[in-house]
């Protein structure tokens, strides 16, 4: 069970959250004007990155807010969590426990 730092509430166990897939996939302003291929891409295609991945979580059993996170999918350590609307932060390429398990204190 991961330990996830909600940007509004702080570190909480994974059971309080729901995963919500890749982040920064904006719904087109005018979907009707979008061609078939890019619309299909928007609906279904995902980066599914191996390594740091910008993704969305919702603090479902907490504040209820959606937020973004960058997690290294090769280690499951978080590099950052940030609020919706904030730009994707610069993070190192690899995450280790000391930097990012969130809430476990500084080493």
């Amino acid at each position: 069970m991961l330990l996830i730092t909600c940007p509004y509430c702080g570190p909480r166990p994974e059971l309080e959250f729901r995963y919500a897939g890749e982040a920064h996939i904006a719904r087109p302003e005018d979907p009707s004007g979008v061609e078939a291929d890019p619309w299909g891409e928007f609906l279904y295609n995902r980066t599914n990155a191996r390594g740091p991945y910008a993704e969305r979580w919702r603090h479902f059993h907490g504040c209820g807010r959606f937020f973004n996170a960058i997690r290294d999918t090769t280690t499951d350590f978080f590099l950052a969590t940030y609020k919706v609307g904030e730009p994707r932060p610069d993070v190192p390429a690899r995450a280790v426990a000391s930097a990012s398990t969130g809430g476990a204190g500084e080493r």
Binding site: M1, L2, E14, L15, R50, T73, T75, D76
Partner: peptide, 13 residues
């Protein structure tokens, strides 16, 4: 597990 991952392991729950 709920999230994408390449770690080949998941949570105890």
């Amino acid at each position: 597990d709920a999230y994408t991952s390449y770690t080949q392991r998941g949570g105890l729950h």
